[in-house]
């Protein structure tokens, strides 16, 4: 018998790995990939809850999150391509126009 808290622990660890990657990577594409990691951990959390609470709603939510993640990846990578076209760089330290 696999306990629910084991799934939640795996999910929490994966989410924190995603947070670490998002905060520390230089490459914007890798930051987006870290967001995908976080979304996946949330999906696992919802699916596990749904299974152990014997309710289908969590898994319906996972379905919608996957749809939104696909949209987010398309828009985010479009922004990355535009940034690269304008700045010739995809690194966070080169995009400092808001600093003035």
């Amino acid at each position: 018998m696999v306990h629910l808290s084991w799934y939640l622990t795996v999910s929490a660890m994966l989410f924190c790995i995603g947070v670490f990657g998002f905060l520390t990577r230089r490459n914007i594409i890798m930051m987006l990939l870290s967001i995908e990691l976080m979304l996946n951990s949330v999906n696992l959390n919802l699916a596990a809850m749904s299974h152990y609470m014997e309710d289908i709603r969590g898994q319906v939510l996972v379905f919608f999150i996957i749809a939104v993640a696909a949209a987010e990846a398309a828009i985010g990578l479009g922004i990355v391509v535009t940034l690269f076209r304008n700045y010739r760089s995809v690194y966070t330290e080169d995009i400092t126009i808001l600093k003035g």
Binding site: A12, C16, V19, F20, L23, T24, R26
Partner: peptide
Amino acid sequence: MSPFVQKGKWAGLVAALALLITFL
């Protein structure tokens, strides 16, 4: 090059670990 940002790498690690402790 290094894959991480120059400033704030350890701050990111600490933030992630603190979040993990809160979650657990």
